[in-house]
Simulated scan of single mutants.
Amino acid sequence: MRFRSVGRSGLRLSTLGYGSWVSFGNQLDVNGAKLLLTAAREVGINYFDNAEVYANGKSEEIMGEAIQQLGWKRSEFVISTKLFWGGSGPNEIGLSRKHIHEGIKDSLQRLQMEYVDLIFCHRPDAITPIEETVRAMNFVMDHGWAFYWGTSEWSAQQITEACEVAKRLSMVGPIVEQPEYNFLSREKVEMEYLPLYSTYGTGLTTWSPLASGLLTGKYSKRNIPPNSRFSLENYKNLAKRTLVDDVLNKVDNLKPIADELQVTLAQLSIAWCTLNPYVSSIITGASSKSQLLENVKGLDIIPRLTPDVLDRIEENFQSKPKLPDPYR
C-alpha cells in the first residue's frame, strides 16, 4: 500500500481508504465490521471514513465498537467523520456553531474516541455564514476534537471563500475536499477545483470510484443482485436514476478493455482514479472481505494503464471536461 499526503498537510493516508457509508448498520453488524476492518488493516489501509448521518448514527457506533474490541493503537489509523445532517430539529442540521459543537461531541461519543483526525462539512450550508463555520471548525480543532477539517461537495467558490476567511482571521482553513470522482463524474475534480490545488494546496479524498457499484458491471435494468446497494429499500430511487441505457451500454463497452488487461471492471475503475495526482485517497466501500481484496488489487494494475488504454476509455465514456478556450 502506498501513502499520499493530504494536500500540503503532513497527514498521510493510504491510497485506498475504507468508507462505511452503506455497509455498517445496513449490511454489517459489529462482528462483520471487525472482519472488514481487520482485512483492511492487513493490506495496509489506514484511513476509515464515516459520517453522523450514515445509518442515522449507527455506522459510527459500529465502527467505534469494532475498533474498541480489536484494540487498535489510535495513532496507527486515521478516522474522518462528517457533519451536516444530525437530526430532524432545526438546529440539528447545517453548519452552525451550535450544530458543529454538539455534532462532533455526539459523533465522538458514538465512535468511543477522544478525537477524529479529519472532520468534514458534509455539504455547504446556504443559511449559516461561512465565517461562522470557519470559526466553529477552528473551535473544534483548538479543543483537540479534530486535527484537520475539510469540505464535501462544496463548490470551488465556497471553498475559496472559506480559505480566504480563515486567512483573514489568522485561522486554519479547509485542507481537503471530498467529492465524487469516477469515469462518470469528473467535472469538479478535473476542472472546477484546478485553481484550489495550487493556490490553497487542497487535497482530495474522493468517494464512489465505482459509481455506487455501477462500474462493477454487476447491474442491469433487469438484474439487481440481492444484498447489493441498489437492492436496499432506501437506494431504490437512486437505482432508477442510475440504471439507464446509455450508462449501462458504456459500462458494457468497458468490459473488453478490462478483459484484455485481465482485470475486473472494479479494479480498472479504481486504478484509473489513482492516476489523478491531486487525489490523496480513494474511499472504497465493501460488504465482504473478498470485495475489499478485489478493490485493493486494482493498485497492482496501474502500470498497465498506458496512454493507449486511457484513450480507449475516454473514447467510450467521452467524459473528460473540456477546458475553456481563453481566446474565444
Rank of each mutant, 00 (worst) to 15 (best):
Pro324Ile: 10
Lys221Gln: 13
Gly32Met: 02
Ile127Arg: 10
Ser198Val: 10
Asp311Arg: 15
Lys188Ser: 11
Leu214Asn: 00
Ile301His: 02
Glu187Thr: 11
Ser290Phe: 05
Glu92Ser: 11
Ala156Asn: 01
Met63Val: 03
Thr216Asn: 01
Val263Gly: 00
Arg110Ala: 13
Trp149Glu: 12
Lys320Phe: 13
Leu83Ser: 00
Ser152Pro: 01
Gln158Pro: 00
Leu70Gly: 01
His122Pro: 01
Lys320Ile: 10
Lys320Cys: 04
Gln178Glu: 14
Lys322Val: 13
Lys188His: 08
Pro129Val: 04
Gly217Tyr: 08
Ile159Lys: 01
Arg328Ser: 05
Asn249Ser: 13
Leu111Tyr: 08
Ser280Val: 10
Arg312Lys: 14
Gly103Val: 08
Ile257Tyr: 07
Ser281Ile: 09
Arg186Met: 11
Met137Phe: 15
Met191Arg: 14
Gly89Lys: 15
Pro124Cys: 10
Ser5Asn: 15
Ala211Leu: 12
Thr15Tyr: 07
Ala258Thr: 05
Lys250Val: 09
Glu315Arg: 10
Val176Ser: 04
Thr81Cys: 11
Cys163Arg: 05
Ser208Arg: 14
Ser287Thr: 11
Ile93Tyr: 12
Ser5Ala: 15
Asp142Ile: 03
Glu92Asn: 12
Ser107Gly: 07
Ser185Gly: 05
Leu111His: 06
Ile313Glu: 09
Leu111Cys: 08
Pro195Arg: 04
Gly298Ala: 06
Gly213Gln: 02
Lys34Glu: 07
Met1His: 11
Val172Tyr: 09
Gln68Ala: 12
Gln262Met: 09
Ile130His: 07
Tyr181Trp: 06
Leu70Trp: 09
Gln318Cys: 09
Glu314Thr: 05
Gln318Asn: 08
Ala271Trp: 03
Glu187Val: 09
Thr264Cys: 08
Pro321Arg: 11
Val53Met: 13
Ala211Met: 15
Val165Glu: 04
Ser170Trp: 12
Lys240Ile: 05
Ile270Cys: 10
Ser319Ile: 04
Val189Ser: 11
Leu210Gly: 06
Gly86Val: 09
Pro225His: 08
Gly173Thr: 02
Val279Cys: 05
Arg41Glu: 14
Glu61Asp: 10
Leu204Ser: 06
